[in-house]
């Protein structure tokens, strides 16, 4: 899987490493952008397509682990592959626990890095798909009126039109009209689908 809009970000303070990784990643037809520091990355990177981050652990100023912490707090976490000049095991464990895809000790095999990148991009692609789907459902749900949301909740709970009408002091016909609207706006063909969609919102 190689989405053409995928981008690999490389953050390393060593220019030799940056140049080499740019060339290596470029040689497998992936877009790559390099940054000399975490600060520069935070300032300049834009995330439109699927992406991942190849991140050096030890840099002057913000460390790679600091950046990881910073990024996990954002709404769109990015898969991280750590590269380190030290075989620092506790550090590696910490990074992996915090969700890193891979922790590679320099010098690493080029295939290992490329494999990790592929895996990271796939994961990000999937996460992006999930996020987009969620955004779509949210958007649809936002179109419902307050009353319709109230009714939708009761439908999901398994109430019949008659029961809902009684509980809300409305006519059964009104409920029927609302129900049709709800199914339409949420893009649900049947109650089972509606239940599935609503579940994702909670």
């Amino acid at each position: 899987m190689k989405p053409s809009n995928a981008v690999v970000y490389v953050v390393d303070d060593d220019v030799s490493v940056r140049e080499a990784l740019a060339s290596l990643i470029g040689s497998v037809s992936l877009n790559v952008e390099c940054f000399a520091s975490p600060q520069e990355f935070l300032r300049r990177h834009s995330r439109d397509g699927p992406s991942c981050l190849v991140l050096d652990v030890r840099m002057p100023g913000l460390s790679g682990l600091d950046l990881q912490r910073e990024l996990t707090r954002t709404a769109q976490p990015i898969p991280i592959i750590f590269i380190s000049g030290h075989g620092d095991i506790p550090m590696a464990v910490g990074a992996m626990k915090a969700g890193a895809i891979e922790f590679l000790a320099k010098p690493f095999r080029d295939e290992d890095l490329l494999d990790a990148i592929r895996q990271a991009l796939e994961r990000d692609q999937a996460a992006r798909g999930r996020r987009a789907e969620l955004a779509r459902i949210r958007g649809r749900y936002a179109q419902l009126t307050a009353r319709q949301r109230q009714i939708a909740k009761k439908i999901v709970e398994g109430r019949l039109n008659k029961q809902i009408a009684a509980e809300l002091h409305l006519s059964e016909n009104t409920i029927k009209v609302h129900r049709r609207r709800i199914m339409e706006r949420m893009g649900a063909a049947n109650v089972a689908t509606l239940v599935h969609l609503m579940e994702q919102l909670t």
């Binding site: 060593d14 030799s16 490493v17 140049e19 080499a20 990784l21 060339s23 290596l24 470029g26 040689s27 590269i83 000049g85 000790a105 320099k106 010098p107 690493f108 095999r109 080029d110 295939e111 890095l113 490329l114």
Partner: peptide, 13 residues
């Protein structure tokens, strides 16, 4: 390790 990492990556590239 820094230049070695670069070296291996360059060779792969």
């Amino acid at each position: 390790n820094q230049p070695l990492a670069a070296l291996v990556a360059n060779a792969g590239a």
